[in-house]
């Protein structure tokens, strides 16, 4: 067991978190949010992207009583708060973007007004540029 020490002092990278799965069918959606929140502690830039069935994660008004699952959608409120803090506080060098892929949203009959938090709606082509410009892509 070799515990490795990384040199992270002053390192600033852009993480893209790609959320592509429906919120409750698998655990990916819930657990990736934990990584998103931890990255804030390291003041890293983050694109939190929702595409494919992942767009349903952001839909307002989740009610999970019928399926007996934990409703984790309040976590998006925390993510939005972290983003607002980063946007408003000049001492925090961290840019967070919450992005929904336009094609996925439209294919599912949703609009930006259906979401629990404020989002940027970008086309798949624009999103490709964002992924290309990222240092780390983590999908969930």
């Amino acid at each position: 067991m070799a515990e490795y020490e990384f040199e992270t002092e002053g390192v600033k990278k852009t993480f893209t978190f790609m959320n592509r799965k429906a919120p409750y069918g698998t655990v990916y959606a819930l657990e990736v949010l934990e990584t998103v929140l931890i990255s804030a502690a390291f003041e890293q830039h983050a694109n939190i992207v929702f595409a494919d069935d992942g767009v349903y994660q952001l839909k307002a008004g989740h009610d999970t009583t019928g399926i007996g699952m934990k409703n984790f959608s309040p976590t998006f409120g925390i993510i939005e708060m972290e983003k607002e803090d980063a946007d408003e506080d000049e001492d925090i060098d961290m840019v967070w973007r919450i992005i929904v892929e336009k094609e996925s949203m439209e294919a599912r009959g949703l609009t930006a007004d259906d979401f629990k938090v404020e989002v940027e709606v970008l086309s798949a082509a624009e999103l490709a540029d964002i992924v290309d410009a990222s240092d780390c892509v983590i999908s969930g």
Binding site: M1, F6, T8, K13, T35, I38, Q44
Partner: peptide, 27 residues
């Protein structure tokens, strides 16, 4: 199991920050 240790998600973020590439293997 031998060779593993348990720690927090910060260790993943640090690996992303400290490596040239972070390779993800999964679905």
């Amino acid at each position: 199991a031998d060779g593993f240790r348990i720690s927090g998600l910060g260790q993943l973020v640090e690996a992303g920050m400290g490596c040239d590439r972070l390779m993800m293997f999964g679905d």
